[in-house]
Design a protein around this nucleic acid. Sequence first.
DNA 1: GCCTTATGCTCAC
DNA 2: TGAGCCTAAGGCT
Length: 263
Amino acid sequence: MPEGNELHRWAEMHNTAFGGKKVRVEGPNGRFEDAVLLDRKVLKRVTAVGKHLGYDFGPDRVLHVHMGLYGDFTEGTGKAPEMRGALRLRISTPNDWLELRGPTDCSVWTTEKWNALRERLGPDPLNGDDPKRAYERIAKRKTPIGLLLMDQEIFSGLGNIFRAELLFRARLSPFRAGNEVDAAKLKRIWKDSGKLMRDAMEDRRIVTTKPADRPHKKGPALNEEAHYVYRRQGRPCFICGTKVMTKVMGGRNLFWCPVCQAE
DNA sequence: GCCTTATGCTCAC
DNA sequence: TGAGCCTAAGGCT
């Protein structure tokens, strides 16, 4: 159940373990028969773009993985474990292995299709992209900013946790129209997203609260104080004490503080 | 054990 | 706008 931080961490790990090496590729549950196209070939490199992963095995041999809501990897060293359960994909060398379960997509793409995806996606805070195009798009739209932040063609890699937390940290209402969002504030949100996602990559955990704002100000954040508003509906805002609200926006649960993020 | 929920996206209507 | 995909974890019994 990943957002961009997790995808980029996977790309790094899988590059380290498998990049430039000849690998075994297997699709044991029968839902990835194209594994034979890649098996015993060299995996050149692994790239993360937004929430997508591309495993480059050469021209028209790009393994595309999208996790959807459920996908997850497990990795390990040494001999791969017994195949079991709904295992979609296994990549292995004699030294390392990974297993993939539950992705929305695991299929071999043409280079053209992969490039078209990259073209379609908006700037990714973790890829050093230029955010200018995203700013321009947002400034033209009357759509609420809470929806625009989730649109992968505007920014790529942000998901439901970052939507809620970035808006809170910017003290911006999710219902504010894109064209009414202050330009400087939008810039700060972009910078903030890069920082939060890089921290999350390192920590392997998304923590958005500042220590000074937490009930326990010392030490690492407890799970229940790692986020300002995400899944904290009905509980008091750490800043003002008002109950955190929730509502479905864009088919996903949105969380916000009606006072700190007044419309 | 069962039920609900979930960091996502696509397609049909 | 809503259903469908498909898996795991956590809360409940």
